[in-house]
Write a protein that binds this DNA or RNA. Structure first.
Lengths: 291, 291
DNA sequence: GACAGACGGAAATATACGTTCTAGTATTTA
DNA sequence: TAAATACTAGAACGTATATTTCCGTCTGTC
């Protein structure tokens, strides 16, 4: 008795998963992550994308009590049409609710509102960040001997992410916290070849502002991620990203700064890969001369 | 030059319709009425349903400048997969508004790609989270005597944000880290009236998984924010948010989980405000009786 | 270290599919 | 009314697809 709809299928996969072989588990993950592909692709194509042989896909279907791959595929196709009708309904609802004003059906309106907000913020992000400053920041990061990341309170998650992701690039990265109030002392130890990334939004936390100023005085480049050109971080910043945080919105989110952070990391990674490649292509003498 | 999307196809059919033969007109009507069938069925099946021969379907496709039936079918499949229209629209709007602004071209393509990615993830977020589980989570959070938030590595920023934002609601919130390896000991102290929010994505960090399992065994409600129904957090979760992380995308971001986190916080805030109001409206005696 | 069992990969096979071709029919025009 | 053109039905063809089977390999166990 195989599954008859997508939810049942998900359930079935979850149940069978522990008893599956490694390869079949891999397929299970793939299948749940990209259901659209399973609905429309051919066995060969899907198997290729999943990095297995077509026969493995059939074995997977059999493990779920289907007679064959095609039989399982029907479930995914069913899901696709079902979902598409619900989309249409939702879009209709949205149109109507728009017409009526703000009076939405209500249940998942909070959810929707938050998502809308986030999308708007992302749009704004793209407008405000210029390629010039962005690449300047990337060059700075890629050339730094060490990177220090500093933020507090609301902005702290951004710093967390940056510290984690940059260190994944094998860049020496330190997440500064003010545990024990040692921040001032620590900042004093930062060298001019290093970089500080300071993140802060209103109300700007004094510690971060002060540390940034201190670094600036000492000739350490400062990349600031903040919300306005009037931010107290601005005077200390070598490069400042001002993600105009619209205070008219009820709840400010971290979506935009985090997205920017990710972009910085990814681009820095690319940049590093590029320069590494170049160096490798260069003869040894030139390399030495450059260094 | 055949159509490249469903809207264009509709347009093309409308234009060609008058010049078509009777049978082809019949097919045109059929096709516009049941596009889902066109997307998934075989020529034979569709032709059968339309009461014509398979070759007629091919002729129809040819009349629309397609090389064959399959080529036309791709359009219908595309329509089926096409994500929520409203997001598409918004992305388009963004693109246009940018074109008018700084027409930089390819320089900040990384930036744009990241933003597009993020928007797609947000769209998926809205799909996957149901109002039911969302509100269950909110009720759980609003009713908890204390809230513990746990995450590591990549997911840690989410936990950070949750801890910060929930504590702003004057909920007693603790951010668990495994500093000093005291995690197990700490988890042992959590009471059943409290709640654990566990956040983890692949590769799932063992500490978080284990802590969640431990809580679950001890009867502590666990809200899991993770990426798939196959997550090891799932079995321990009272409520699990599975934000299907599409591994086909090059870089996974935290945008979706953070947005969800914010939604949870905001809704919990509303919920608390609502219940407070109710209590205030109640006469004192009733209030006592209830407690 | 050897054997049993399961697992995965690749090719072979049979099926089903889309496409094309041809013969026949209807429709329109001279 | 006859001829010519356009259109359709049906079958046949070649291709691509899902499935199965077999053999090599790896793992876990005795």
């Amino acid at each position: 008795m195989p599954a008859t709809n997508y939810d049942e299928l998900k359930q079935a996969i979850t149940v069978c998963f522990p008893a599956m072989s490694k390869q079949l588990q891999g397929i299970a993950r793939f299948v749940l992550e990209r259901p659209d592909e399973l609905a429309l692709g051919t066995v060969a194509a899907i198997a290729g994308a999943a990095g297995v042989q077509p026969s493995a896909m059939v074995r997977f279907a059999n493990a779920l009590d289907f007679g064959g791959f095609s039989e399982m595929q029907q479930i995914f196709r069913g899901r696709l049409v079902e979902r598409s009708v619900s989309y249409r309904e939702r879009i209709e609802q949205m149109r109507q609710s728009k017409r009526n004003g703000a009076g939405t059906g209500g249940q998942d309106s909070v959810l929707h509102q938050s998502v809308s907000n986030a999308i708007a913020e992302l749009g704004q992000l793209e407008e405000t960040v210029t390629a010039k400053q962005f690449h300047a920041a990337v060059r700075l990061l890629a050339g730094a001997t060490q990177i220090h990341v500093l933020a507090q309170r609301r902005a702290f998650p951004v710093a967390c992410y940056l510290a984690y992701a940059l260190s994944q690039l094998e860049l020496r990265t330190h997440l500064l916290d003010s545990v024990g109030g040692m921040l001032t002392e620590f900042v004093r130890g930062i060298a001019p070849r290093e970089v500080l990334i300071a993140v802060s939004f209103r109300n700007y936390s004094a510690g971060v502002v002060e540390a940034a100023a201190q670094c600036h005085r000492r000739g350490v480049p400062v990349i600031a991620i903040t919300d306005s050109p009037l931010s107290p971080l601005k005077p200390s910043a070598t490069i400042a990203f001002e993600l105009g945080d619209d205070s008219s919105r009820p709840f400010r989110s971290l979506v935009a700064p985090l997205c920017l952070a990710q972009e910085l990391v990814v681009s820095t990674g690319h940049h590093l890969a590029g320069t590494l490649e170049k160096r490798r292509a260069m003869p040894a003498r030139t390399r030495k001369a450059r260094a």
